[in-house]
Write a protein that binds this DNA or RNA. Sequence first.
DNA 1: TCATGTCATATCCTGAAAGTATGCAATTAG
DNA 2: CTAATTGCATACTTTCAGGATATGACATGA
Lengths: 305, 305
Amino acid sequence: MIELRHLRYAVTVADEGHITRAAERLGIQQPPLSQQIRNLEDLVGATLFQRLPRGVALTEAGRTFVDRARIILQDVDLAVEATRRNARGEEGSLAIGFTSSAAFHPLVTTAVRSLGEISPGVRIKLEESSTSDLIEALRAQLIDVAFVRSPVEQSKGLSVSKILDEEMFVALPDSHRLVVKGARRTSPIQLSDLADESFILYRRPSGPGFYDAIIAACGRAGFSPQVKHEAPRLMSTLSLVAAGLGISIIPNSMTRLETNGIAYLPLDRRTQLVAPLHLAHRSEPSGGALKLFIEIVSRAVPELG
Amino acid sequence: MIELRHLRYAVTVADEGHITRAAERLGIQQPPLSQQIRNLEDLVGATLFQRLPRGVALTEAGRTFVDRARIILQDVDLAVEATRRNARGEEGSLAIGFTSSAAFHPLVTTAVRSLGEISPGVRIKLEESSTSDLIEALRAQLIDVAFVRSPVEQSKGLSVSKILDEEMFVALPDSHRLVVKGARRTSPIQLSDLADESFILYRRPSGPGFYDAIIAACGRAGFSPQVKHEAPRLMSTLSLVAAGLGISIIPNSMTRLETNGIAYLPLDRRTQLVAPLHLAHRSEPSGGALKLFIEIVSRAVPELG
DNA sequence: TCATGTCATATCCTGAAAGTATGCAATTAG
DNA sequence: CTAATTGCATACTTTCAGGATATGACATGA
């Protein structure tokens, strides 16, 4: 069976035109090199070198072989290098998923941008979907990593770590009585302040989300919110708020949507109503771009559980 | 050091997705295969397979490696095949030299045509020159084989074998007294019949050739020929003959030149004046197209010394 | 003719690949 | 929930081929 050793030896002998010198360069003795060359010639079934009184010279068949051997040896090196680059996350591809509510979080956008800067060779594919669909997609190998909102059961085969808890804000029409004109920041609002308000909440068809968390928090605050409207997406929710049809509660990062006619007021932390952001990926020993991306996210967060 | 064995193993494991089955296909046991895969991963410096509860699966880096490994293994096979074809004389190149007096011999043209038919992949290069220049060219590796006329000293490093002896013909103006009109063939002519003729001979600047052989044969026949004219090339010699300025003596194969005004009459064999044709090549153990060509020539000749 | 340089051959040794036995972990069947 | 099954990993042994050493064969050149 031909091995790369044979190619390396043949190339060196061809370069030196001299078995003894080639052996020296290869760090072995002359007799084993002679044998290996002979062995190679037997395997190939052709004389590759003609033995001269002083040294050896390639036959035409030998030149054919050695020329190709050089290329093959180079290809092996290239293959190893490419594999290493891939493993280091310098090349390859990474499919990143996120929920619509995570799309605007600076951590997400920053991490994606960082990956692109650190490893320009990585093809990044972005996918926006609901938490449950993202989990599904992770399982189906459609995406490699996802930013999701809680609650996420620690389902098997997946590794989910909480990155941070976002504070929640009340979104209300800027004509609302709770909005102090001219002052952009006011003191935190208590959930109980909203007991008499009409709520506009968005609920996703699949799985529990903010909806249930908000209902539960209101319950803890001693009232049951009047949910006048529901909307399928966040943007439509905010539209309804702007139209003065009620108020809503959204994570901090989404207040960046500077929508006309909407004011954002911080909720008191003691309401325990927060929007956690999780990073999820298959719990395989991740390497390559995925590992790098996880590291980037970890570094961007004070601590990652 | 990475060997082809590693590539073969990795490809098989990737194909089977299963180390045990791959080992079976490779004709080895599972533990050594596991070890070799691990060993390869260490050499490359990346995890190529993720171990699953049932079987193994390629990592992205692993796919990069295996994809390239397949190509490399194929390239090795192709290299071996190409080398064999070259050694068998199915590919490669062959530079063939011949003297001008051999150019018209059917053996030469037939052999060259046969090579082209048997091995269309061989690039054939033809070179016409004098015997001594051809010998020179053989030494300088400019040509690989040559058809030459005698005498050729059995010089070192070269192998020269006589292919055949061509009978000689007398070329004379068709108005000559010796030419029997209407009869194309006459009984052989004796050299002594030509004792009173004017000879036109061609002599090459380098080395002895027919010139001396003819003079010597005439001497044996009991006369010294009157060399009225000399010409540098055969064609000009024949022109002088056609012009009626004298006669000449040429090898059989050259009588194919149906020149107007010239008649060719066979010389009696007993004159011992013949034109030997030799095949010369470097006495290296010849392989490839050269070996094939020598075989073709040998086969075309009753026996080759 | 003798010294020199070079490849080939013969023999021994070593190391690495392959074999054997078994352990460990996870899945699946009962 | 336990037991059986499956499949990779680990530990240890064996074998064989690649490498080392010594020497031979052969041609060259002084």
